[in-house]
Amino acid sequence: MHAVIPYVTAALLFGLGVYGVLRRRNAILVLMAVELMLNAVNLLLVTADVTLPTPGGHRGGAFALFVIVLAAAEVGVGLAIVLQYYRMRSAVNVDEVALHHEPEAG
């Protein structure tokens, strides 16, 4: 098999994920794009298992499993934050998140 095919797929998916993070305004859509990026990495890891000449190793697969677990945890906590923010502002646009404390009267 030509290993370059899944590699390029992974690269393109990662680029799409970056595009999505920088383009989307809704926080949940940003999280979806982050999932795309994580998946691309998983694909890279699994393909590396095939191309790297380690005798009898499944390291890439093991790493991919760990990434999946981490992604699940991240989505859980992230969505909890999103919901709490929704309760405060009743909208989830990342544009409007105030990261700094404005000084009084400008």
Partner: peptide, 8 residues
């Protein structure tokens, strides 16, 4: 995004 994807 394009840069990252194409670059990789």
């Amino acid at each position: 995004g394009g840069g990252v994807g194409v670059g990789l």
